[in-house]
Structure formats: C-alpha cells, structure tokens
Amino acid sequence: MITPDTLPLLLFLLGLGLAAVFFVRPTTATREGKILAFVGLFLFPLLCSAVGFSAHMEHSKTTTFCLSCHIMESFGKSLYVDDSHYIAAAHFQHHRVPADEACYTCHTDYVLYGGIRAKWRGMRHVYVQYLGKPPAPAAIQLYTPYNNRECLHCHLGARSFEESATHTAIHDDIVSNQVSCISSGCHDTVHNVASLANVKFWKGAP
C-alpha cells in the first residue's frame, strides 16, 4: 500500500528505473523517446531531489536528529531530569513541546524565515562537528542570547502566563525582551548539563 512514507521511495525507484532505461537504450530519435528522456533525465531527477531534500529538512527538526551527535548526549539526558525547575525537561516531559521535535520547537526563531535561519545555524553546528573543534558539552553556549520571543510564541496570551502576578508586573519588559525569561534569575535552570551528575532522573529516561 502506498503511504506518505513509501511514496518518496517509489518515486526514487521509478527515477532509477527510468535512468536505467536510458543507460541500456539511449534512443532519443523518436518524439516519444525525447519526451521520455526529458521526463527521466530532467523532471524526475529534479523531483526526486526536491522530495529528498524536503524529507531531510523535516528530519532535521526531529529530536533524534539533534541528539544523534555525541556532543548533544548530555543535552538529551537533561530532558529527563526529574525536577520541574529544569525548564527544558519540564517542557519535554509534559509535552508542552512536541517530544519528537523538542529541540527545534524551542531553538527555532519565530519570525519570517526563522526556520531557514535555524537550519543555517544547524549547518554551522554540522561544520563545527565535522570540520571544527567541538567544545565540551558544558561549554556549549547559544550563538546569541535566547530571545523571549521564542517563549512568548506559546506563552503569550496563555492564562497561566497572563495571570501570574510576576509576569503582569513586568509584562512589557518581557515582551520587549528587556528582561530575559531565562537569564534574569526567573527561569534560569534550562539544560544545566554540568550538574547532571547530581540530579535525579525521571523513570522514562533512556
């Protein structure tokens, strides 16, 4: 049965089949042959590459993808800390963010072309991982300070956020990013990978 998962696979197999036909019989003398060559050696390869690229873009959003690098192991572990003060863990464990896209959900930019910017940052990670000198996990820092906009994408307007007396008192400062959610002493325990040796983990930890 054809499913959205098997469709790209079939497309690639068909593309390979068509290319094989022109390797065995590269006849483009007839009109039909020319049309088939155009489909098999131009349209299909481009379509397959576009579909494959799109699939890889989707894969790159997954938690599995981000945590597949050894250097990210402790960050993955931090998602299972049994302490609600660890905001990354609390969001992940209570599915406040989709568990299978946990990293991307918090670390993308919620602006126009923010997804592309996030992917570009991902390319920088890849460059550092394979060609640069990766830092120790505890020394990893964001390229730029975390923007409240990413938190407010979900929390702004939510009852739990709006009814909090602390949030109400400094609402404008939070929205304008004058007061940082995570580095102003309020929600400053995020991944804290340096202290993972001394914490308790949730039973669902891998």
């Binding site: 290319a19 022109f22 590269p26 050696l41 390869p45 890889h56 790159s60 997954t62 597949s68």
Partner: peptide
C-alpha cells in the same frame, strides 16, 4: 544521454541510500 543516465542513476542511488537517514551525515 548514456552518461547523463549513469550520473542521474548514481545520484538517485546515493540519495535513496540516505533518504531515511536521521543523522547530519545522511544530510
């Protein structure tokens, strides 16, 4: 056309091999 077919087939084969890969190396 034959050379084009070989290159396209090789490219599609490589792409197919790593299509399901969920690692930066696959990308």
């Amino acid at each position: 056309v034959r050379i084009a077919a070989v290159l396209v087939a090789a490219g599609l084969f490589v792409e197919l091999l790593v299509l399901r890969g969920v690692r930066p190396a696959a990308f």
